[in-house]
Design a protein around this nucleic acid. Structure first.
Lengths: 155, 155
DNA sequence: CTCAATGCAAATCTTTTGCATGCTA
DNA sequence: TAGCATGCAAAAGATTTGCATTGAG
């Protein structure tokens, strides 16, 4: 058993969900866990490939599906034709953030500020929506679109 | 010139943007303009095809791109691997709504309620984000995810 | 040992592109 | 009439699937 396969909190998540912990799964998880980027499956595959040329793109996709199913990862679409994957759980629970998307260059910025105000409003809205549409709301997604610093030009 | 090519407000939009008004464009626009669904390119193609078998899928895609570029249509991704297109302008300006997405069956509900409260908060947040990230915000997208009436089962 | 997990190649599906032809303005 | 717009076929990508093999528990 390779070093590192022992001590990750995600290990117990895998085992607890009835899945096996394997090297590919750990490597892929670690990449997601140590980046702030919004990686596509292929991005992840390239990073993996540098140190583990044996791990295939298919496994990346399958692992991402698994992590999504387990609720550790979420897939986002920013309109460039490929999915982007982000860890949404830390060892201590949900790590919440929203996105700022540049419609010109495609850059994505995460933001965690201003969430306090949102919290109240979202709570209220969620309640209203749940009642009106008889819908059980479990999550939400907020994205602001516009032009980033570089793309909006002189300022 | 087929009947109907004359009197649509979108016609002047096309002409004003330097594009020609054609039968396919009008037909595709009309479909978007008379549905509450979240149609994919293929969905639109099938609807078109019933009455105008000559219009191809490629033209549907190209027209949707054009309408997006003109700001009349927006493409949404609900995670099922294909884009969904919605008219976001009416003759009187922007028609704003948000989405409720069932993570089990994929159903999407539009909602227009509760937007008043949102407006204030979003304005405030936008201002904060613009300043902090030097970002010019032009639009936003809010989606609530969860289980719809049918999928959440007994109540 | 058993069966879940993997890798590879091929298949699938959505969206885009090249090019000859048609049609709007 | 001049070019933009279209249709078709083919290409390009992203993601999924089939199947024999590997390896975690």
């Amino acid at each position: 058993m390779p070093r590192g396969l022992r001590h990750h909190w995600c290990r117990s998540r895998f085992r607890g969900s009835g899945f096996r912990m394997t090297v590919p799964r750990e490597v892929i998880f670690n990449i997601l866990n140590s980046t702030d980027s919004h990686l596509s499956a292929e991005d992840i595959y390239h990073k993996v490939h540098r140190h583990y040329p044996g791990i295939g793109l298919t496994t990346v996709y399958r692992t991402l599906d698994l992590l999504s199913e387990m609720g550790l990862v979420r897939r986002f679409d920013f309109g460039d034709g490929r999915g982007r994957y982000e860890l949404i759980m830390g060892p201590k629970g949900k790590v919440h953030h929203h996105h700022l998307l540049c419609t010109s260059c495609g850059r994505v910025i995460d933001y965690k500020e201003f969430l306090e105000d949102e919290k109240q409003l979202l709570g209220k809205t969620e309640k209203g929506l749940s009642r009106k549409y008889n819908f059980k709301i479990t999550d939400h997604d907020i994205t602001f679109m516009g032009l980033c610093e570089k793309c909006k030009g002189g300022d």
